[in-house]
């Protein structure tokens, strides 16, 4: 992306206007009796002014940073994000053991392209280690899921 400040400030401007309208619906109240939306409204207005300043600054003075996010391995990032979200969704249904073995396995196999034998060995043993750490030592209640493990 060529002009990070321009695009981001545009986004923040829209965001802050959204917040201001949202706060107005929550009732701003008055200075005598500030309401629920008073503080977010104030923060939203200041945010909008700052975003506008950045926007104008980037238009008038230009931006001397080189483009960002150009050389990024998006594939890796998207894959990891998908794995994370899937994990969050299935965790309570499949239970900690199965979800974690699959999570580690998929990350090591799909993103890092490790050998199958290594993938299986690492994901199973690491999951056991995590299980011991969380279940016994940190006394978290890990979800058991429909299989009861």
């Amino acid at each position: 992306m060529k002009k990070p400040n321009f695009w981001s400030s545009l986004f923040w401007l829209a965001f802050s206007i959204f917040i201001c309208f949202g706060s107005m619906r929550l009732k701003i109240g008055t200075f005598h009796n500030p309401g629920t939306g008073f503080f977010p409204f104030l923060a939203g207005v200041v945010f909008a002014v700052l975003s506008l300043t950045l926007l104008i600054q980037s238009l008038v003075a230009g931006e001397n940073v080189e483009g960002i996010l150009g050389k990024v391995r998006w594939k890796n990032i998207i894959l990891v994000l998908i794995c994370l979200v899937v994990y969050a969704v299935v965790l309570e249904k499949l239970g900690f053991m199965i979800s974690t073995i699959f999570f580690i396995g998929v990350v090591l196999r799909v993103i890092e392209k490790k050998r199958w034998s290594l993938v299986v060995a690492v994901s199973v043993s690491a999951t056991l280690v995590f299980w011991v750490i969380f279940q016994y030592w940190l006394q978290s209640q890990l979800p058991k899921g429909i299989f009861g493990i």
Partner: peptide
Amino acid sequence: YEYLYTGILVFCLIGAYSINNSTTDVI
């Protein structure tokens, strides 16, 4: 690094879950 970050991710996932035992926190 590949093992390290996988570990960090699992730690974060379980850590976030165990705050309130809720997947909303994970999201």
